[in-house]
Design a protein around this nucleic acid. Structure first.
Lengths: 152, 152
DNA sequence: CTCAGTGCAAAGGATTTGCATGCCG
DNA sequence: CGGCATGCAAATCCTTTGCACTGAG
């Protein structure tokens, strides 16, 4: 039962990816499938270098190019820390709303979630602040910066 | 009264800067004073390019080099958005705890603050989450991503 | 004098792009 | 077949660095 459930989710993810790409007139090619697969397997955001370790057979330039396409299709989300490497993860509606804790020593990023009550209070406060300064708020980004166990 | 108060703060800022630099065996030189001055004048984080507009007479390479020094001295804080430019602001203990709203169109960053009650709840929740995964939390970063009035 | 800081120019490095080839529709 | 995606290599561009010079103590 568990296996077919996983397979089902997997099919669903790739189907959603294909649909979103189609909606911007893009194909879901082998290389793009590999990139999505690499991110699906991961439990935290990956650098391009890390993606290429898993998505072998995808050249670096194609990875960069297709990550842009996948970002445009709202399948992949790019995050930037203070080190020199961009990191990528599946968008939140393909996974679930979560936050990042960033190690200020090594740049590593780990996912975590917060209680729903905290989330909604934050959203409420942020939207109020945005309205006040004439911004149209889209989403929030709440990260914790600290030191991971390895770097302590 | 207001004027002397501002002058007082100004002196204080530069004094603190000098002290913090001294504590890491660095001098508070003319160029560094100019950089701090540029950031002090600003009401939001500045790119190097923007800094150089105000801190004329500071060459680009010196700006980069000294921003690193000022960062090491905990006078300046570097923030990274998804566009290609790092941005700099005075550290929070020289100003006050605040957040950023980032325009996803043009990359511009504006400061705003949240009610203290929200802040403390967020901190509490984040520290709990960090403990759970073996991180030592340092500070949080709560940004809102949206579209600024100019880009709407 | 000495040595940290400076400034110019050249290098570095993640990311982007030009162009010829191949493959999907 | 026709055009989009690919992949190699070269270019881009923010940022960093080498090195000779200058000024403060």
């Amino acid at each position: 039962m568990a296996e077919s459930e996983v397979e089902g989710r997997d099919r669903e993810l790739h189907q959603v990816a294909a649909d979103r790409l189609a909606s911007i007139d893009q194909r879901y090619t082998r290389g793009r499938r590999e990139l999505v697969g690499a991110l699906e397997r991961a439990t935290n955001p990956l650098t391009v270098e890390q993606i290429l370790l898993t998505a072998t057979s995808v050249p670096q330039s194609s990875a960069y190019r297709n990550l842009v396409v996948l970002e445009d299709a709202a399948i992949v989300h790019r995050i930037v820390t203070s080190d020199d490497y961009a990191r990528f993860e599946l968008t939140e509606d393909l996974t679930e709303h979560h936050h990042h804790i960033i190690c200020s020593e090594c740049g590593n990023v780990v996912d975590f979630t917060l209680p729903g009550a905290v989330e909604s209070e934050v959203d409420k406060a942020l939207n109020a602040a945005a309205r006040k300064i004439g911004f149209s708020g889209d989403h929030h980004r709440l990260d914790l910066v600290g030191t991971c166990a390895d770097c302590l």
